[in-house]
Design a protein around this nucleic acid. Structure first.
Lengths: 135, 135
DNA sequence: TTGTACTGTAATAAAAATAGTTACAGATGA
DNA sequence: TCATCTGTAACTATTTTTATTACAGTACAA
């Protein structure tokens, strides 16, 4: 989810700074220097999370779904994150070992603890706050 | 760094639980269900960070470099982490764009803020605390 | 009603990151 | 001097991420 948060924040910042104007995926991709279809995919995800709205057809494009004051960085983070931050085991550890048997559970506790913390921290900053830095 | 933190914590927990006994990389790999050479690579890194000591030769193996009470989960995290959590841009964004030009700097600020938070949180839990859960 | 400029999405390819493997030199103790 | 272990490099395989291409569908406007 590394690069995706970066991209999502970049997108959201562009939409904030351009104040309601419809931006095309091509334009956004140009600023990010990434592929337009990829950007549309992320925009699609952000729309699913009610952070952007889109308009098809000529003169279509993307805008914020609501004022930047009402969007927190945590919401963007949530929209993008899919896996835990510090990771779960990819190989089932050995269940015959007292440590292996329980490590996933205890790692999960660490992960959710940290994730809560991140959400709390990012929840304190609105997209409007963040975007102000670019003016 | 996802899977590596999991592996490193697993290793450190095994070494804690086995109370000073030398463990071989083979034994550790068996509990984690991973490759022994891979585990040795991570052990090598943990040693570099003064968290484990190793002994070569027959009857060799690995032990904690210091008591588990004196090791925090944050130290393990630090030993393993190499990149930022939420990511920096992989493509240089467009420098001709006010947002693209500055996004990396501002994302970096978010990243270090979160990293500090993680360190603070993980710094509150010792390896001894964590390992108690497995007894 | 037709052309143009967009979104939406799937299929696929390329690239990068991660994990796993093999191999073997060197250390150490029995 | 043999057996058992670490240390590390070189390499391969796998998985994940990112990029590309392609095209159907929508909306506006002349």
């Amino acid at each position: 989810m590394n690069g995706r948060f970066q991209i999502a924040v970049h997108i959201m910042t562009l939409l904030t700074v351009s104040e309601g104007e419809q931006l095309s995926s091509d334009y956004i991709a140009g600023s990010i220097n990434a592929n337009a279809a990829l950007i549309r995919k992320e925009l699609s995800n952000l729309r699913k999370h009610n952070l952007v709205s889109s308009k098809e057809g000529k003169a279509g494009g993307y805008t914020l779904a609501k004022p930047a004051q009402q969007i927190t960085m945590a919401q963007i983070y949530q929209a993008v994150k899919q896996d835990s931050i510090l990771g779960e085991a990819r190989n089932a550890p050995n269940p015959a070992c007292a440590v292996g048997k329980n490590i996933n559970k205890h790692m999960a506790a660490i992960n959710t603890g940290i994730d809560d913390l991140i959400n709390k921290k990012l929840g304190m900053q609105s997209l409007a706050d963040f975007s102000k830095q670019f003016q």
